[in-house]
Simulated assay, not measured.
Amino acid sequence: MFPYFKESSSVDAVNSRIAPDVDARIREVMTSLVTHLHAFVKDVQLTPQEWDVAIDYLTRTGQICTTERQEFILLSDTLGVSMLVDAINNRRPPGATENTVLGPFHVSGAPSREMGACISLDGKGESCLFEGTVIDLQGNPVAAACLDVWSDNAEGFYDVQQPDIQPKWNNRGVFTTGADGKYRFVGIKPVSYPIPHDGPVGKLLAALGRGPHRPAHMHFIVKADGFQNLITHTFVGDDTYIKRDAVFGVKETLVAPYERNDDGETLWRSQFDFVMTRV
């Protein structure tokens, strides 16, 4: 029987129009999307006025997007969808270092630096020694592991946000471990900062009583032959926003110690070992 559109059978009416020869994955995704979307509309009893607001919101979200700013990704981030997709696609065994979102400020081609070098080029901020070991799940050191690291500066901006103010490659660098798997470099203790909140995403956060800030963190991409690539952050545990990350990037295992280092060459020291998973 032909499924005429009715409230009670709306899902069948829509999904039955999918052609029998379409790609199986497209069918799976769209069938589920329609099913959940219709269930949501029925659950909240969406009004025409609310539907208009939703369409206008999505329109404005698209209109603010540029090659430098992707408001839809920001929306995905603040709704926890980006982190969920990342978690589903980066499941690891217990004990392995967890993934988190890449973020929008990674830049390929950062300079390789000698182990122990300083990546802070503007001389601002509280100096911090970052050190630890890249190991496998059995505790063996991983040689020739490449660590691509980056952070904001003392004012909460990445160098690409201030190309006329910060030196190029400020607070960025690439380090390669030796046979002992150890890494060591000097940067600054990172600071918290707000995500862009002057657009539709910012208005949504305000309407929900949520703030736009991310807690202070250092970014890492760790790669080694024979191991899964690791994209992660380490977070400053006493940061004001550690439990209010606007993009839900904080995981308990990624909260790193930041200890005063009054007798050392830097003001702070952060020790963190990265546990890699074999492919």
Rank of each mutant, 00 (worst) to 15 (best):
F220E: 04
F2K: 12
S108T: 15
F220S: 06
S9E: 14
V29P: 03
W51G: 13
P111M: 08
Q166L: 15
V11A: 00
I55R: 11
C128A: 13
L147D: 04
A206K: 13
P94L: 03
E131W: 08
F220V: 07
T100Y: 01
H217V: 01
E68V: 08
P167I: 04
Q63V: 03
V34I: 15
E71L: 05
I165A: 04
S270T: 09
M1F: 09
G226M: 10
V107I: 14
P163G: 06
T234L: 08
S270E: 00
L37I: 01
D238L: 06
I231W: 06
L74C: 06
T61N: 11
D136Y: 02
M1Q: 00
P111R: 03
Q63S: 07
R184D: 11
L46M: 15
V201Q: 09
Q49M: 07
D86I: 09
R214K: 09
V44A: 05
G139A: 04
D198V: 01
R25W: 10
S16T: 09
T67L: 05
D164H: 10
T176S: 13
N261L: 10
D238F: 07
S10Q: 06
N261G: 06
I135C: 09
F220W: 13
A216L: 07
F235Y: 12
Q161L: 00
F175G: 09
R260L: 06
T133R: 14
S16V: 00
D23N: 13
V53H: 13
I88M: 14
S16Y: 01
T253A: 15
D148S: 10
G202N: 03
Y158Q: 04
V250C: 00
I18K: 04
R269T: 09
L204F: 12
G173C: 08
V279I: 14
D23L: 00
V279N: 14
D225G: 05
E50L: 04
Q166D: 14
P163D: 11
E98G: 05
V101C: 01
V247Q: 10
R91Q: 13
A143H: 08
N153R: 02
T277R: 07
D245P: 03
K243R: 15
L267M: 12
G202W: 04
A24P: 07
P190H: 00
L58W: 03
V222C: 07
K251M: 05
I26G: 01
P196A: 08
F157Y: 15
T67C: 01
A246V: 12
F40K: 12
R278N: 09
L84F: 12
Y183P: 01
D225W: 05
D159C: 09
K189G: 03
T234F: 00
D43F: 11
P141N: 12
S32K: 09
D225T: 14
Q45T: 02
I242P: 02
H233F: 02
S16K: 04
L137I: 12
P111G: 03
P200V: 14
K6Q: 11
I55W: 07
L102P: 01
V186Y: 02
N140G: 10
Q271A: 09
R214I: 02
H197P: 05
K189R: 15
G181S: 11
L102R: 15
C146N: 10
D52I: 09
T133K: 14
G178H: 11
R69K: 09
R27C: 00
C128W: 02
L147A: 06
V275E: 03
R60S: 08
F248H: 07
A207V: 10
